[in-house]
């Protein structure tokens, strides 16, 4: 009876839009899911895009099997300090980082497979009061950390075997950096957003702080997700977790903003608002697609170039959605629930 009812009345959000459930994985031993991501993993000469799930005490690697099923490859036990987030390292294979801590990140750990002795390992990359961390191309990791005396922005380079090979400090701004984004197509450029709503641009090769530009007072605590340079302008995708609703732009979740780094002037290009009646969001961006978990327990998906919400995934029968992440390859959304269930949707 329930099945008939569902068939007769498909949810309008799913019926109209383009999220197609591909597969589902569930870790029966997982207590409380905190993050989900993807990572390339190679075994016996075969490189596959695997799913990585994290609960507070462990991180599990899943490989694709036949018929849209997933098999557990390995579970790293991480001890007493809880996992806060998975930190993917783009373009790498057999490596993934995780951030651990209580309220703030206190440690970044590298999880890897070592072919030298055919074993899965973990090693500590950095400790401290870490405010933000991002995996960069070429096995680099950038983090911002704060002590009472100083604020540090540091790059750590990792070898294929997971050892730290090199470190470099970037000139820190006065205020704390809360998020980073690589500038696509510019290997040496990095941007960050700060606690007082500035965009910082660095030269990664020299460590120079090149420019500081203000985002605007209407959008407190903006977070940068993606950046690219085109025609002499720096385009940055920002999310606005705490922006208030306004008549002019609704309840903004994401904005694409063009900055002129020469003059530090900026202009909003496109704004993507929350669906009517929804509040709160915590999101992820890949290319022109953004996804966010809303406080209603739904997941919303936007096309950032159109500024339109293109799909709304309602809370499932088992409960609210808690996580929304894009897979690093392919148009695939990873949607997670607190009980450890992860659904893969083709978008």
């Amino acid at each position: 009876e329930v099945a008939e009812q569902l068939a007769a009345e498909p949810h309008p959000g799913l019926a109209e839009e383009s999220l197609q459930l591909v597969s589902k994985l569930k870790d029966s031993s997982s207590c409380c899911a905190v993050d989900v991501s993807t990572a390339w993993w190679e075994a016996a000469g075969c490189r596959e895009l695997c799913v990585v799930t994290a609960c507070e005490s462990c991180v599990t690697l899943w490989k694709p099997l036949d018929s849209h099923c997933w098999g557990k490859v390995h579970t790293w036990q991480l001890g007493e300090v809880p996992v806060i987030q998975i930190v993917p390292l783009p373009g790498t294979c057999n490596l993934v980082c995780v951030a651990l801590g209580e309220l703030e990140i206190g440690e970044i750990r590298l999880l890897l497979y070592s072919s030298e002795n055919d074993s899965f390992k973990q090693s500590v990359v950095k400790t401290g009061t870490i405010k933000a961390v991002l995996g960069l191309k070429d096995r680099r990791l950038v983090s911002s950390s704060r002590t009472l005396q100083e604020h540090q922005v540091e790059i750590v380079s990792l070898s294929e075997t997971g050892r730290s090979t090199d470190g470099q400090t970037l000139m820190p701004p006065e205020e704390t950096v809360l998020a980073f984004a690589e500038v696509e197509g510019m290997r040496e450029a990095l941007v960050g957003t700060t606690a007082v709503n500035s965009i910082i641009v660095w030269n990664l090769k020299t460590g120079q702080l090149l420019k500081k530009m203000h985002v605007g007072y209407s959008y407190p605590a903006s977070i940068c997700h993606r950046a690219y340079s085109d025609s002499g302008l720096l385009f940055v995708v920002l999310s606005h977790p705490h922006a208030k609703e306004s008549e002019s732009c609704g309840n903004p979740a994401f904005r694409l903003v063009a900055f002129n780094p020469t003059t530090a002037r900026s202009r909003g290009v496109m704004s993507s608002s929350l669906p009517p009646g929804h509040t709160g969001r915590q999101g992820d961006v890949k290319e022109a697609s953004a996804a966010a978990v809303l406080t209603s327990g739904a997941i919303a998906v936007w096309d950032l170039l159109l500024g339109q919400c293109t799909a709304l995934l309602p809370p499932g029968p088992a409960g609210s959605w808690a996580l929304a992440r894009w897979a690093s390859a392919g148009a695939c959304l990873l949607a997670g629930q607190r009980d450890g269930t992860v659904c893969l949707y083709r978008y």
Partner: peptide, 23 residues
């Protein structure tokens, strides 16, 4: 976006800012 909104635009902004910024 036009130059009137954002001021003069340089295609080489990264190199120019790197040359100007303190080391």
């Amino acid at each position: 976006c036009s130059e009137s909104d954002l001021g003069p635009i340089s295609l080489n902004w990264f190199e120019e800012l790197s040359a100007e910024a303190p080391p």
